[in-house]
Design a protein around this nucleic acid. Structure first.
Lengths: 340, 340
DNA sequence: CTGTTAGCGCCTTCAA
DNA sequence: TTGAAGGCGCTAACAG
């Protein structure tokens, strides 16, 4: 590794001269000296040591990112978007992925990132995070952004996808197609969480004056929790008065459901309409192509980085800001007019 | 930020004493002193500054990872696996994602990582990488592992998935089901690359004494390159003598193909069998569930990290080692007996 | 048992 | 226009 000192010795110059010419904005150096320094640096293959610089400047230009191991499919896309957004801001990411459920491991990961002097933290949230811990970090002045799920509390910087209105749009779409009997699997813990998709579902029905039947909403009993196969069968087995549309809580589940529906000899969307949530790369390719809600990964990333940079660049403590990213209804072939 | 110096001053001790008690393995310190130091560190909330330590030790315990932006779906899974594997080895990853095609940007990213003094580099390879550059880094002594695609050259550490035998297995599976007219879209640049899947395809056919028809292999003309819809239509439009099985080069493409097949009024697998490659989370959920080749992400990650650690821990230059990860045939419902 | 010293590579005054 | 000194937080010898 070539250092400034080595270049300085080589040229019989002071270290600070070399440093200043190479990185500084000090313009009043002898043109010839500058030339010699530049030439030597080039020739010797000098590369600045980011660590040393970070130490003295107190800034690493690195953001600690904690991602989720769930939702494989969507997280890849989000991560790439984040990498790009950070790159544009001149930052790199130190990445760890979080295995849900173990809060101790999670804290250890965050401590590790902080020990490495990251300039900020970007945490992808889900139901099983540790918001109290995030809050205490934020209180200590750690620049930090939570990203993904709707805010848990108003006192933390948060970027979130407006899932509620996403599901509202989706439900309205079905209503406009004439569906009146609509079933939905809101997933675990729907009621624990503010701004959950189920709110959008209920609001759309209410506005249309349509009654939602409790038995058309998958409840939380452990036996059927997450059991998409069971849900789909339960919903569709009675021939009369059965739902004409099934709304799944994400695209993966919708695919699993489609499989069951086909096996039952029903046709989508002629007999039943199906919706997902999230819009995976595959969802437009599948058959039938899935009507779903698209979550703009790039915008989410951009806004997250924006919120982070605000905090990092701010002289004093910033008031906490939250950014809502709208989702987009994407209509494809898995939904159609309600059967007569 | 609490430093060792502050603790030392607080306790009227030397910095090195505090350092040694807190991090060192030197056991002969006064039990009472140790206690005092520990207690003070705890009370003052001391956290070691990883940067400072890295500077003096010359090791950051950080690996630079360059991932691909293509194949969103699979990359998320691989990244999580990598994060876990690195975690087990006590390393963190500095992640950048590579936008294919721009070699200059790619080199800049790698330089950035190196400037940050990463202890090694893990690069996900595809057809558009810059192996010459990787080779020059490796020659300079940078611990480095290439991962994903089959090795381009024997002089670089490489972890790769045995795609050739993956496709061999897949083809044999079809042959055993009685298929004789099998079409395949090997993707771009199949012939540029060693150990490509198409080798497995040809080998299986050859062993079974089945002739492959050139027109059943999608060629590289720009007009139809990557055009799955066109390929599928071309293959299936003639009613007689048409392929009874279509092999796509990845799962996404298979899904796109399935869609077209259904639109043509054909049934899978009764009329046509379909295979993918890669095994996405969704592939087992889709309808029909996709017969494909599973690529073990965790093993790939583990072996990559293993190869990296070998180099990092080695006293002198290691001979270059390459590890092949076998793939696994996964039979589901998109393949069935060839129609009579 | 404990403290002092000398860096790691760089940047930032400040003096020459 | 240039250079010397001091320090970022820590560790590794080496003295005491």
């Amino acid at each position: 590794m070539v250092t400034l000192k080595q270049i300085a010795r080589e040229l019989n110059l002071g270290v600070s001269t070399v440093s200043s010419v190479l990185h500084g904005d000090n313009p009043h150096y002898n043109a010839q000296t500058r030339q010699r320094v530049r030439e030597a640096a080039e020739r010797m293959g000098y590369r600045p040591n980011h660590l040393a610089r970070a130490m003295v400047r107190g800034k690493t230009h690195t953001i600690g990112v904690m991602g989720l191991t769930t939702h494989d499919t969507v997280s890849g896309e989000r991560l790439h978007a984040l990498s790009d957004a950070l790159d544009n801001a001149g930052y790199k990411m130190l990445y760890v992925s979080r295995t849900i459920g173990d809060l101790a491991v999670e804290r250890k990961h965050l401590d590790d990132l902080l020990d490495r002097q990251v300039d900020g933290l970007l945490i992808q949230t889900d139901l099983y995070g540790d918001p109290d811990h995030y809050a205490s970090l934020w209180q200590r002045g750690v620049p930090l952004v939570l990203s993904g799920l709707a805010p848990d509390r108003s006192t933390l910087p948060w970027v979130w996808l407006d899932n509620t209105s996403g599901l509202y749009d989706l439900t309205r779409h079905l209503l406009e197609l004439g569906h009146r009997r609509i079933a939905y699997t809101p997933g675990q813990a729907a009621h624990l969480y503010p701004h959950h998709r189920i709110e959008g579902f209920h609001r759309a029905l209410r506005e249309a004056g349509v009654e939602s039947q409790p038995r058309w909403i998958m409840d939380d009993r452990p036996s059927i929790r997450d059991n998409i196969v069971q849900f789909t069968r339960d919903m569709l087995q009675s021939t009369s008065d059965r739902p004409t549309a099934l709304m799944y809580n994400n695209d993966e589940q919708a695919f699993a459901g489609l499989q069951v529906i086909m096996q039952m000899g029903l046709h989508v969307p002629r007999d039943v309409s199906v919706t997902g949530f999230g819009d995976l790369t595959l969802s437009k390719l599948a058959c039938p192509a899935l009507t779903t809600v698209t979550q703009p990964a790039a915008e989410l990333a951009r806004s997250g980085v924006e919120l982070l940079m605000e905090q990092i660049l701010a002289k004093q403590a910033m008031p906490c800001r939250q950014i809502m990213i709208p989702t987009r209804l994407t209509v494809r072939n898995s939904t159609g007019p309600a059967p007569a």
